[in-house]
């Protein structure tokens, strides 16, 4: 299977300072994450808010440079590449942001937004009309400004922008997070259709397992910057192994301790886990293969 993006042991910390800059608090956003995105395998990244999903997406795109570890694009280490050197990568891997109300420049009309997203050599030949057609927007929308459109329409413009460069992979960061239920279905169907037309590979970031189930073949569950479980959709959702995955899949069925703002030396989930043992607080579990391609980081399965 051809790999598109691979990251190895990436790490990202953010430093939060108080007003005078005396007290520092280091937030570990991404902790030693390694993952691979293969061509044709749509990958879903799930986790609750603040688990580092968006940061991981930005690292995969090198919009945020990791503190440690490397990102590979088709086998080439591009972690230290300059923006100019990254241009070929930017053309092939695009992102759709969560909030269409923020991700479009308020001073640019649709025509300019899409035109800008096309590679320079294709700007003359490729038509904006085709792109608008592909995302199902009427032709007269090319003169509109973002504030003149609804959320769903804006998100379609954002999708049009992403596909305008003929990418092979699109990272969708909760593309339906800000939309109502019917628009959500429309956008998901649109993404599904575009996948077939353009042969795209999606990385789908969501907190909604139902959407990931519909759109993806592979799933990665992250908690506080750590991958806790990964595997094929069929495996993970049929028999979730990690207690956190179970919690995400059916939040009401399992009794857990409410969110604790403490991190242990060991498993990051230990304080919330109802199955936690002594070892969970002391040693960090490693990702281990349980079944074929189904990996989990939990002492319950060792």
């Amino acid at each position: 299977m051809e790999e598109i993006i691979r990251c190895e042991k990436v790490k990202k910390t953010f430093t939060v300072r108080d007003f005078l800059g005396i007290n520092k608090r280091v937030v570990l956003a991404i902790d030693n994450v390694s993952m691979t995105i293969n061509k044709g395998v749509n990958t879903g990244i799930v986790g609750e808010s603040g688990s580092g999903k968006t940061t991981l997406a930005k690292i995969l795109l090198l919009l945020v440079r990791p503190d440690d570890g490397s990102v590979y694009y088709k086998g080439t280490n591009i972690t230290k590449f300059s923006e100019t050197e990254l241009r070929f990568f930017r053309k092939n891997v695009r992102i759709i942001f969560q909030n269409p109300f923020k991700s479009l420049n308020p001073r640019a009309n649709v025509e300019r937004i899409i035109k800008e997203a096309m590679p320079e050599d294709e700007r003359k030949t490729k038509k904006i009309a085709d792109v608008l057609d592909a995302v199902g927007l009427p032709q007269n929308y090319k003169d509109r400004y973002p504030h003149q459109m609804s959320g769903g329409e804006r998100q379609r413009v954002a999708i049009a922008r992403a596909i305008a460069g003929n990418p092979e992979c699109i990272i969708a960061d909760e593309p339906t997070g800000n939309l109502d239920a019917t628009t959500e279905v429309y956008i998901l169907n649109l993404l599904d259709r575009l996948k077939k037309i353009f042969g795209l590979t999606y990385v789908f970031i969501s907190h909604n397992l139902k959407i990931v189930e519909k759109m993806c073949e592979k799933i990665i569950v992250i908690y506080r910057g750590n991958i806790v479980e990964q595997g094929l959709i069929s495996q993970v959702l049929k028999s979730p192994l990690h207690p956190y995955t179970c919690l995400l899949y059916n939040p009401v069925s399992i009794k857990t301790i409410e969110t604790v703002d403490k991190t242990s030396q060991g498993c990051p989930f230990a304080y919330r886990c109802s199955f936690a043992k002594k070892i969970c607080f002391e040693v960090k579990p490693q990702l281990k293969e349980k079944e074929k391609e189904h990996l989990v980081a939990c002492f319950l399965y060792e």
């Binding site: 930005k58 795109l61 919009l63 923006e83 990254l86 241009r87 990568f89 930017r90 053309k91 695009r94 992102i95 942001f97 991700s103 479009l104 420049n105 800008e116 997203a117 954002a158 922008r161 460069g165």
Partner: peptide, 8 residues
């Protein structure tokens, strides 16, 4: 950020 992700 979107503009940056387009490689502008």
């Amino acid at each position: 950020l979107a503009a940056k992700s387009l490689g502008l």
